[in-house]
Design a protein around this nucleic acid. Sequence first.
DNA 1: ATCCAGGTATGCA
DNA 2: TGCATACCTGGA
Length: 301
Amino acid sequence: MGKTREVSALPEPGWSAWQPLVGLPPLSAQVLAETLDGGQAFRWQRESDGCFLGVWADHLARIRRSATGQAEWSAPAPLAPRVAPALHTYLGLDRNFPDLTDSLPWRSDAHLATCLAAFPGLRILRQPFGETLLGFLCSATKQIVQIKQMMALLAARHGTEILPGIHRLPSWPELATVPEATLRACLLGFRARYIAQTAQFLAAHPGWLEETETLPYAAAKERLCSLPGVGEKVADCVLLFGAGRLEAFPVDVWIIKTMELRYGLTGWKPAQIAHFGRTHFGPLAGLAQQFLFSSERSLRG
DNA sequence: ATCCAGGTATGCA
DNA sequence: TGCATACCTGGA
């Protein structure tokens, strides 16, 4: 921040003109970064000019802030017509996050109020379901940087090239054709077995994943947890960030830390914290979780 | 060098 | 049901 940015009035060759993301309230640079690159998604990277470049499904887009904080997007010209509606979905622009956020119990929870104030405009992404599953299958005891590296290697080596030098993530049917040892070479470690086994299961059960996405929260979570390498935490992340289920409340080490530090829940087990979260934060507990997560992570490092 | 990192699965009181 | 331990491996 504070660095001068090129203000391009004219579209660069091959890219569509920058257009405002209508429906997205003005955001600080920190909140935009936290939304795209704070651990919900693993395929956004900062470019040298400060904008974010991201790939999801077969879409590619850049996002930046205008001087007023209005978010703007641009995409490779041939892709732009399809990227526009895809971005709308991806960023959850069909939901009123300011209203949803205001309905959280911040009036009776001072710490939550602090977190909401620290990241105004933070929202939950609606990513492709299968890709979200892949990302969080890789997340076990790994930092975000490492997970991003794994995703990048998986895409580069096993995903379709959608533009020169730009690869999408491999689909689950594509992953099913990759030997576990080859997956291991993408820095996956023991996670390679989870992915290989999950890919085999999904290949043997066509439509299973798509159907899971449409099931009610509890049923969807139960099915996800039956996959190798998917426990409660990963299942909740997939449902929250990949299916828009805002009632999903992932309990990771950061949330455990937050609950201990800010809510006095010392020694509580993950299942107990999950129960506390659902009852204390209500039906949008997952949205609250994201504010707590971002705040705790920005305080410590 | 030794330890840790957005967890999950397994084995044993 | 509850708690400890293994599982891969790059980076601090």
